[in-house]
Design a protein around this nucleic acid. Sequence first.
RNA 1: GCCCCCAUCGUCUAGUGGCCCAGGACACCAGCCUUUCAAGCUGAAGAUCAGGGGUUCGAAUCCCCUUGGGGGCACCA
Length: 486
Amino acid sequence: MIRVRFAPSPTGFPHVGNIRTAMFNWLFARRHGGKFIVRVEDTDQNRLVSGALDSILEALDWLGLQWDEGPNVEGPYGPYFQSQRLRHYESITDQLVKEDQAYYCYCTPERLTCMRKRQQSLKQPTGYDRHCLNLSSPEKDKMHGASKTRVIRFRMPNDRSIILEDLIGGKVSWDSNLLDDFVILKSDRYPTYHLANVVDDHLMEITHVLRAEEWLPSTPKHLMIYQALNWNAPLFGHMPMILGPDKSKLSKRHGATSALEYKEMGYLPEAMINFMALLGWSLDDHTEIFSQQDLVKGFSLDRVVKSAAIFNKEKLDWMNGLYIRSMDLDDLTVRLEDYWKEFPDQALSIPNNVSRDYLLKVVSLIQERLKLLSEAQELTGFFFLDDTDLEIMELIQKGMDAEVTFLALNVTLNELRAMDSFNVQNLEKCLLDINTQLKLSRKQFLGMLRIALTGKKISPPIFETMEVLGRDRCIRRLELARSWLS
RNA sequence: GCCCCCAUCGUCUAGUGGCCCAGGACACCAGCCUUUCAAGCUGAAGAUCAGGGGUUCGAAUCCCCUUGGGGGCACCA
């Protein structure tokens, strides 16, 4: 049984890089009928951010990445919060100390900083100098009694060649002499990441560790802990990073980096999933659009690339528009309503008496013009505004003057009043006739109507728009426009 | 400074020794459509496969070096 995990630390928002890693884990688990576990790495008590975990889980939830074990989903390997698993780490460190594979260190932060500086200036590799390992027994006893702050360090064996067969990167090797005796248990009795992730991955029977490439340099440390404990290490796969447009690690200064910001901006989860999957993975040389099921079916680690990718927002935009266009009208309308409910400041102010039917008609007119859910407000506001609230600017078209415009509005008003059924076909026929009679270009005449009826230079096709608005409102708006002329 | 990773159009990528003087997608440009904006369609442009050495009958594909980029070197994860 394949078991993979996503191990977020609740110290910040759900970064898209992390969320993509979560997604690859999820895909891998689903592809192979395995389990996807969320484990909360809350061992840094100083950096905990309240609400961070909730937003991380919310992001997973938004994207439909359901976990099989983890917060709110009890499983046989719990608890899934590292802060609740301290006894495990303690018993392991006790064992390692007893076996001389780890030792207490009493060095002050000041001494360590100073040591590091010296090494830098001497152009040596930086790392702990084993000062406390080399303490004599009486010295140790003395320090142990006197010092209130002590940590436990892993004793890195000398002269070992450490080899990793990475699932994505291939063979990578390190020389253990370049690795130092790193801390595994902090002075507050919490483990460091290095220890905790090894202990938990083992105890939770994780089979594949798929994590970001930034972890690659610390993997030899983890491998050595597995070895010291005589445990089989899981398989590792290091995912390429996501970079900002300047090719540095994606960060806040590049704009949105939280998955939930994308939700707020009006991206669809299915577009987000599809787009992120293509950042570092491909099925073949031509497939771009995937349903979640296709993705699960087609996903494989050996098609994950090694090189980092730049987050290409233009392509995401295109893809989001594509998904919006391919949706059922009802579905899109429901999505918009949900979106407006969640982000009221981006919502239309829709009067209570608007019928569902009217809403559907409006949405149908903007569906293929929408790239983001958030754009609906700007595109359709005039459908819901009171007639008197329209702002009429530039009513008089190029090559026309107030007089001609006035006349055109007059003629149009008369015809519209007399028209039979107020539908697209009749409107088109009638208005194009008037257009011809008036000897105006379509651009002039229809442009004028557009401004008078919508207050905008850009709108859905004007005949459709008029049908949806209905005769009464069209006539009122044209009358208002006419009155503004004089 | 030390360690590790990476390197194909602006961007995401296909490519695992001959099918490639390199294919697809986004963006860009042009044309068509047209009532504005989109959408759609058609087409164009865009990569001497980072550079240099090898190996081979043959290299984007294998090896080495250089350069460039990235990541890591905490009692953070």
